[in-house]
Design a protein around this nucleic acid. Sequence first.
DNA 1: TGCATAGCTGCGCACCTGCGCAGGTATTCA
DNA 2: TGAATACCTGCGCAGGTGCGCAGCTATGCA
Lengths: 116, 116
Amino acid sequence: MHLVPADRADRRTIDGHRVCEAIAAIGDADRLRTWAERFSLLADANRLALLLALHRTGPLAVSDLAIATGMNDPAVSQALRLLRAAGVVAGEKEGRVVRYRVVDADVRGLLEHCGD
Amino acid sequence: MHLVPADRADRRTIDGHRVCEAIAAIGDADRLRTWAERFSLLADANRLALLLALHRTGPLAVSDLAIATGMNDPAVSQALRLLRAAGVVAGEKEGRVVRYRVVDADVRGLLEHCGD
DNA sequence: TGCATAGCTGCGCACCTGCGCAGGTATTCA
DNA sequence: TGAATACCTGCGCAGGTGCGCAGCTATGCA
């Protein structure tokens, strides 16, 4: 395997073959960025609280989320907008109430994972 | 269940009981922050690349990691310092080479999770 | 001993992020 | 129609983050 890109092929390696293994292990850069972005969505305690609440108790209204988390409404709204733009949550409008839920399967997996 | 803290007990709720369920679902604030910090360590593409390389190919030297990821040495070193301070990786010195590996079980679980 | 190499550190800059505040829109109800 | 409610948005600030650069320490080898 010769996976080292041309622009760094001249650098000295410690374990040459393991470098190639490492490059293969890292894989596609796009997939990498996608996962990093996913993790960054869970990397804030407030957003994580919102997601856990939605994941474990089902659809919830914005102001109820605000009370449950101790945030105030605009902060909740902005966090949900971010999560919605990323395709992690979706909101359904019923009258003047919007109930959100988690729709991304990967994120749900991560939320399960941090349960124990 | 009356889990709503006193400082927000006067606010109007949409679904009162679900707010209590949500508070229970969120759980302990410390555990929440711990997980958020864990996620934030994986929330950078470079750090994630380092961790995936270490996780999947075993112990690797700093300069090999730099070549594999395309970062330069100080950046790798700083990222590893951060991860080491968080107890995620550990380094073993052999002569003038330091080989790092992933030692945190939770993070390893997350790295497995983002394999597919 | 002298030199090259592996790795670490401090500093500074550009960039991003979360959130509070003030104000706007849409829906409900008297 | 007017008031109250649920939610959303734009703006600005404070704080954090990643990384390049220059320079340092420690190890190995001729």
